[in-house]
Write a protein that binds this DNA or RNA. Structure first.
Lengths: 186, 186
DNA sequence: CCTATCGTTCAATAATTATTCAACGAAGTG
DNA sequence: CACTTCGTTGAATAATTATTGAACGATAGG
């Protein structure tokens, strides 16, 4: 038996736990805005404060959720580069750690997300621009249709230049170029 | 009657419509990654190509969805600053236009989202740091508890400096500082 | 004023996403 | 080579979110 008489009870939070809770909630809300589900954001918050490698089992007890969901959650955090799996193990259990440097965490997060965006959009643009150009060049395209295609093409070219810029932006973000006058990494 | 014999039929798409569709799909997927629902992202794509003020009714026919949903969708786009309501009206109908400059559109979008993030997090940090500091300063706080609080406080201070940096970043983003060597706004 | 139509709201329903549970293969242990 | 226990998977369920439809106040036109 672990701690007390039976199943579940309202644990009396310490003040510190309560304060942590507020920050974790804000963090989870925030990540919610970027397409990360609230619970998974909470998990990041917990790992952030815990600040030492955690096993799935520990996550389970902290979050009070099934192990399979924790497995899913931690994978999602890893996908966004907000956490990583360590090479060491505790007993037989895998260990995971959150990136606790907010600069690095959100740097990785946005770099990952934006890169995905760029890839998706570039894929579409690369697939669409050639046939559209082709149609414009065709001799038997009606004048009206050619005009419409030209308008679209112009918009897509503008998009291309945007995603070129965005790619550069992501590169700079990853290289740390935007983090110059800062980092009190004491 | 509008166009043909009855209700709904598979309209035979022109090549141009099909190509547009691919780009719209990519756009919608992309926005999906940032917490904007797919349909609403599609609507942005449609408005982007349409490139002239649209009424709710037109959106309805393009998207084949209820007017109430279109009302909701357009409001969501306006919240993210990706579209705006015009002062003029067509008949009695309100007119809306999408921001067609991708630079501006995504600039507004991220500025809005990041600002919300900053506000939420600053709110939590401002609420939590004072009482936490207080506890540390209290004479009757146990040594153990003081140590834990100090660790948390250190993390939160790091977070504060991150959000200060992020605020500056958003300001720069809004001021256009990052868009220097570009903008082929021909 | 009366009528028609706009855009919004609210409650109901449909669709999607999050979560659990049971089962399984892959190690580590003895 | 059996025995655990780990992490993942896939199907079932719960919870949330998207979408609709009906009702309403506002307002422009007659």
């Amino acid at each position: 038996m672990k701690k007390a008489t039976s199943g579940k009870m309202k644990k009396p939070l310490t003040q510190r736990e309560e304060l942590r809770g507020k920050v974790i909630d804000a963090l989870a809300q925030t990540m919610d805005l970027y397409g990360v589900n609230y619970s998974f954001g909470q998990l990041y918050g917990i790992m952030f404060f815990e600040d030492k490698p955690m096993t799935l089992e520990e996550m389970q007890t902290h979050m009070n959720m099934s192990k399979s969901n924790m497995s899913y959650a931690v994978r999602s955090l890893i996908d966004s580069k907000m956490a990583s799996k360590l090479k060491e193990k505790d007993e037989r259990k895998d260990l995971y750690a959150a990136e606790t440097d907010f600069f690095k965490a959100f740097q990785s997060f946005f770099a990952t997300k934006l890169q995905r965006e760029i890839d998706v959009m570039r894929g579409a643009l690369d697939a669409v621009i050639p046939p559209l150009s082709e149609t414009i060049l065709e001799l038997n395209t009606s004048e009206e249709e050619r005009k419409l295609c030209l308008e679209d093409l112009h918009k897509l070219k503008h998009a291309v230049s945007y995603y070129e810029w965005l790619q550069q932006f992501v590169n700079d973000l990853q290289s740390g170029a935007y983090f110059d006058g800062r980092h009190d990494n004491r």
